[in-house]
Computed example of a mutant assay.
Amino acid sequence: MPVSETQITRSYNQEQIQQILQIAIARQTDDTEFTREQLLEIASELEISPECLQVAEQQWQAKQGEIQKRQDFNLYRRSRLQKQAGKYTVINSFLMLLNIVNAGQLSWSLYIALFWGLGLGLNALNTFQSGGEDYEKAFQKWYRQYQLKQSLTTVWDKVLKAWQT
C-alpha cells in the first residue's frame, strides 16, 4: 500500500527553511515592497525577537554598504583602465604614424606598442579579477584613500561654513 504525501512527515533544517521561504516570498510578492512594520510582523509570527531582528537588519545594512563600496571600487578600477587604454591608443597611434612618416614602415614603434600593450593587458587582468589577496589589498588601499578624502572634505566643508558665518 503506497504511503501518501500527506502521511510522510518532513523535517527541514534552518538553511532549508530559509531557502524555501525566500523562494515563496519572491514568487508571491512580484516586486511588492514590505514596510518595516510588516517585517516586524513577519518576524513575530516566526517567533523572532525584535532585538534579534534589529541585529540582523544592522548586519544586512552593513553588508549592503560593503557591497556598494566594492561596486564603487570596481567601477573606479574599470574607469582607470579605460583611461590607460585611451592613452595607449592615442600615444601609440601617434608613434606609429611618426614611424611611418620617418621610416616609411613600422619598426621601432611596434616594440613600444607591444611592451606597453603587455603591461596594459596584465593591468586589465588584475582589473577584472575580483577576488584573492591582491584584490583585497587594492580594495583596502582604495578604501583608506576614500575615507581620507571623505574626512578632508568634511573638515573643509566645516571650515568653509565657519568662515562664512
Rank of each mutant, 00 (worst) to 15 (best):
F94E: 05
Q150Y: 04
Y146K: 06
Q22R: 08
N13Y: 14
K83L: 15
N123W: 09
T29Q: 08
N123M: 06
L21E: 02
L40P: 00
E51W: 09
K149A: 03
A62P: 00
F139T: 03
A24C: 05
Q71E: 15
I67T: 03
K149E: 13
S93W: 04
T35K: 08
G119T: 05
Q38H: 08
Q105W: 02
A56T: 04
E66F: 12
S107A: 08
E41R: 13
A62L: 08
L110I: 08
C52S: 07
Q59D: 11
Q28H: 15
Q150D: 07
G131P: 00
W142A: 09
W142F: 15
I48Q: 02
Q64M: 13
P50D: 05
F128G: 03
L152E: 06
W156E: 06
Y76C: 01
N99W: 01
Q61F: 06
R27E: 05
L106H: 00
W156S: 03
G86K: 04
Q38E: 12
N92M: 10
Y111V: 07
W116D: 03
K83E: 13
K141Y: 12
Q68P: 00
L120T: 01
Q129T: 15
Y12K: 11
R144M: 13
L122S: 07
A56R: 06
L39A: 02
Q19K: 14
R77G: 01
T153P: 00
